[in-house]
Simulated scan of single mutants.
Amino acid sequence: MKLLKRFYSFLVLFCAVSTVNAQELNFTVQVNAQNVAQPNQTIFTTLETSMQEFLNNTKWTDQKFKEIEKINASLVFVVTNYDNDRFSGNFQISVSRPVYNSSYTTPIFNFKDNDIAFEYVEYAPFFYNANQFENNLISLISFYAYTTLGIDADTFEKRGGQEFHEQAQTIVNLAQGSQGVAGWKASDGLLSRFRLNDDMLSDTYKEYRDVMYDYHIKGLDAFSKDSKSGKILLKKYIMQFEELHSRRPNSLLQRTFFDAKADEIMSIYSSGPAVDIRDIKTSLQKLAPNQSSKWRNIKV
């Protein structure tokens, strides 16, 4: 099943919207340079516009999207240093997707990349070449474009984002030959782009992608029919992380899931029809101890 078949039943409400060969992403980009002393602030505005247009106007796949099928996401680039066309700082990527038969939008990815460094000359054109490393900025943006596509597709079909994660892997491999940039190699630490992509494609961490599908399609998307049953199902799917945790405690993908979902899980189990949540609360404290303040707000 391709991304085109993402089955939003509520789309029938928009049947008057014509089908177009639209691009896949709807990114909002913000470049935050408020802590950088730079007389010419226009370069940051130009960079912001260029990044957003590149993400949203590039055709990343061979699939046709309607405007309302685009994937909503945001990228915030916090600039910590700028000197002579060289930028460094961090990216904060957030991605969401709608829930079946609902006006609710659920977060599916929330990731901070602290190893951002690149050169950018104002008004320089952006070109994506799938077979060649152009520069680190193009690779960074393209990597997160394909990672966004892959994670979104994984929530609609089991392992549905495989081809996009593999394309992100190609970007990682091509970027490894570049000099003086971090985040692309196995030696770059446990929070790198290499580690995020490698874990995504590894069977060692298979529960992450399985849960992403089950949680959204079988859990959240079932809420419209029966919220109590939905809560019970979500508990079951979240606790699938127990097996991953026993093999790789506090893995990057496990932390990534709960960074995106902690507020949502707290809200789900703090209201609505009552279910026995003693086991899930105990599990959450073990699986995501960094979110313990939120788990304490869940009342048994």
Rank of each mutant, 00 (worst) to 15 (best):
D85W: 00
T80P: 02
F87T: 04
N26V: 07
N84K: 14
Q63Y: 12
F27M: 03
Q23R: 06
N32W: 07
E53G: 11
A33Q: 06
Q63D: 12
L25W: 12
T58M: 04
I71K: 00
Q23F: 05
Q92C: 00
A37S: 15
I68M: 07
D62C: 01
F27K: 02
T46C: 07
S94W: 00
L75G: 05
E69Y: 03
Y82M: 04
Q92T: 06
T49W: 05
Q30P: 00
E53C: 05
T28W: 03
L25D: 13
V76L: 04
N40P: 08
N101H: 14
F77W: 01
N40V: 11
K70P: 09
Q52F: 04
I68W: 06
V29S: 13
W60A: 07
N21I: 09
Q41W: 00
T28I: 14
V95F: 01
Q38E: 14
L75R: 04
I43S: 07
A73F: 00
V36A: 10
T80H: 06
N56Y: 04
A22F: 02
E24Q: 15
T46F: 02
Q34N: 13
N40L: 05
E48A: 07
E24F: 14
S96F: 01
A33K: 05
I68G: 01
N40I: 05
N21E: 13
T42G: 03
N81P: 04
Q30D: 13
Q63A: 13
L25T: 11
Q38M: 09
N57E: 13
Q92D: 03
T58S: 11
D62Q: 06
Q38F: 06
S50M: 06
N32A: 10
S96M: 03
N40W: 02
L55Q: 06
R86A: 11
E67M: 09
N84P: 00
K59P: 05
N57A: 13
F44A: 07
V36T: 09
M51I: 15
I68V: 08
N40S: 14
Q34W: 09
T45S: 11
N26M: 09
Y82R: 03
F87K: 02
L55M: 14
V76C: 00
F65S: 08
